[in-house]
Design a protein around this nucleic acid. Structure first.
Lengths: 235, 235
DNA sequence: TCAAAAGTGTTTGTACTACACCCATGC
DNA sequence: GCATGGGTGTAGTACAAACACTTTTGA
């Protein structure tokens, strides 16, 4: 009888603690050679075996969500220092066919292609994929990606996140190209330069970038003395 | 032995499914007589017994998060049709002293004071409380409230959520006062009127509001033909 | 010296700000 | 008729948009 009672207590506890699994999914944007890409993983296992999905994984009880994101990205990219921001929680009842999973999506920015991608055991393949040629994605990951891109486009207009995608020192044409890639439209070169400099958001380093074919452009750096929360710019 | 085996399986399942509890907490804004308020509940039980907190509750397995919000608000206010938007997920490890609870916060807007508040069994008291005189709040609810207010203030500048707080027909002075309450600053009456009308965001009904002491102001209504996602206004 | 990309200033238009007087109503 | 709040227009300013030529460099 004692074991039945223990079973009963366990069942009760089980029921009480029965909760959805919590996962994170990450839209990791990278920028390289005038292309905005996201990191995709080809799944080895069901569901969605052989389909491309966003990197993601399950929360552990002793982790915060951000820590989960960083652990997963470290496993897959080797990179640990990057900009991450919470995006939205996706909670449709059957978004994962296995069981109830609530996914809290994050998006991140990385100066991509610096680090070798690591192929984990649960994946067939991992790659950077241009946002202009995305394959069909598993789960509701296309929806998550679309929201992330919208958020990134909105945010870059009034918050200096773009710099997370460039090196410590960069040229104005590089910054300009980055903005055009993210926003997917052309921006007047002269006005762009003027706004960036007037906001004293970037500072000249006095150096020039060499090794290029034509005129050597000036190098700038991010002005870290500006409070990004009070940064105000209209591209 | 059979019961031990069952116990073992159960324990394994328990472990596998051990996940944080998921709750929602709701910052419900109401507006009445030139005051912006939020709905607060005085807890009867530990933790934070006798302290004021945001309305909230635990997700059930068969519910979406929005359904959880609506169930909770229906229990406490009797009101079911209201504007709700996901705000942020709060996941600090010990934000709830009982166990790991991840709270997905929502904020909502209600044409308040229409509906009688319902005192549930787990509460000592429930009330609308002016945002200018908030008591200390339990859990991390002050942080949640602050984020909600910031979001509301940001959003009202470019999205027509303010109308959710007014009746179907309203006067321009009422709308003006609502914006001033939410933003907590004065706005030029003439410019405000001009912008609202130029955006054809509100439409004259041809009627006037009577029963007032002085000149009877014109009544307007929300222009539902405008796609709120393309609504653009700068207050 | 030529081709390609980087650097620079001015003009024009639009949109926000600031501001003061008349009108309708109830008492 | 008077006190109170509602309705209306204009002038000034600031910022964003549009736009073309000169400079630097490698080949």
């Amino acid at each position: 009888m004692r074991s039945f009672y223990a079973l009963y207590r366990m069942a009760k506890a089980f029921h009480q603690y029965k909760n959805p699994s919590i996962s994170v999914d990450i839209v990791l944007f990278g920028y390289h050679e005038s292309r905005l890409s996201i990191l995709l993983i080809n799944r080895k296992e069901e569901p969605y075996a052989d389909r491309w999905t966003l990197p993601g994984g399950f929360l552990r009880m002793e982790e915060t969500l951000l820590q989960t994101c960083r652990r997963i990205l470290k496993e897959k990219t080797g990179f640990s220092k990057l900009y991450l921001e919470q995006l939205f929680s996706f909670d449709a009842l059957h978004r994962d066919p296995r069981r109830r999973v609530i996914s809290i999506a994050y998006y991140g920015l990385i100066n991509s292609f610096y680090y070798q991608l690591v192929l984990s055991k649960i994946a067939n393949d991992i790659k950077w994929c241009s946002v202009h040629h995305l394959p069909p994605l598993g789960f509701d990951h296309r929806e998550i990606y679309k929201l992330a891109l919208r958020r990134l486009r909105d945010k870059i207009l009034y918050f200096p996140i773009g710099f997370e995608l460039l090196h410590g020192e960069f040229t104005l044409p590089e910054l300009h190209d980055l903005y055009e890639c993210i926003l997917d439209r052309t921006l007047d070169r002269r006005n762009f330069r003027k706004k960036m400099l007037d906001a004293s958001y970037i500072l000249p380093t006095g150096k020039k970038k060499s090794g290029l074919q034509h005129r050597h452009p000036d190098l700038y750096k991010f002005n870290r003395d500006i409070d990004p929360h009070h940064f105000k710019i209209n591209i």
